[in-house]
Nucleic acid binder design. Structure first.
Lengths: 118, 118
DNA sequence: CTGCATCCTCAAAGATACTG
DNA sequence: CAGTATCTTTGAGGATGCAG
């Protein structure tokens, strides 16, 4: 879907924007309650252990955290690094694809900060 | 919350990012299943009647549409323009604040289009 | 420490019928 | 045409216990 003012189209496909629009796809990857938070922390701190993420994401259940980490991993946005130790140690970091969200998140952050104050 | 690599902070407030982070605020306004779609259509087509929106938002219930339009109006992202006619005619358009989402939506669209193809 | 399985809750969303 | 009012459904997310 084209959301640029200059050359708006009106073909039939536009109706199904949820399916074929970039925004729809983007949201399918980072939408929902927790994913953006997880990405933000990993963007800030490079590499975090499972327990470190759990401590930062106030209120998240272990079930949700694991679920979302799995989805992010499957979508190639984060890497899961297993250290073969006892006790186990697992770290998560952004992939290059995950890193590429930085610009969007910064923009959303700026927008929010700016309009929050009013 | 600061998600810019260069000057990452680590103060205690960062933990509660959902409350005081711009992203959290932004998402509270445009999160959920339908709002971004509505904004996108209004960004494309300037001004749309209630029925026009309903026809474009495939699958939305009237209840949801009204609900989301109300929320967007309360958050000052759209204007509701009532034409005192019979039959009634109501149009919706973006406010300046609503327009200011264009940059973010374009970025999300670009990201999606780019990575959708892979 | 990291993670999975099970059961449960509740709010968001859907369906339907109706009105000024 | 542009909504409202109910009722029902669904599924995302929460709580808990257990395991490698």
């Amino acid at each position: 879907m084209n959301i640029r003012k200059e050359n708006s189209t009106n073909n039939i496909n536009e109706i199904y924007w949820k399916e074929n629009c970039g925004i729809g796809f983007t949201l399918s990857l980072i939408g929902g309650r927790w994913k953006i938070n997880i990405l933000s922390y990993l963007l800030n701190e490079e590499k975090l252990r499972y327990s470190e993420l759990k401590n930062r994401l106030i209120g998240i259940s272990e079930r949700m955290l694991i679920l979302k980490l799995k989805e992010l991993e499957q979508d190639k946005l984060i890497n899961r690094i297993v250290h073969p130790e006892v006790p186990p140690k697992v770290e998560y970091e952004l992939t290059e694809l995950g890193q590429s969200f930085r610009e969007i998140l910064i923009l959303m952050d700026k927008w929010g900060e700016k309009n929050l104050k009013k």
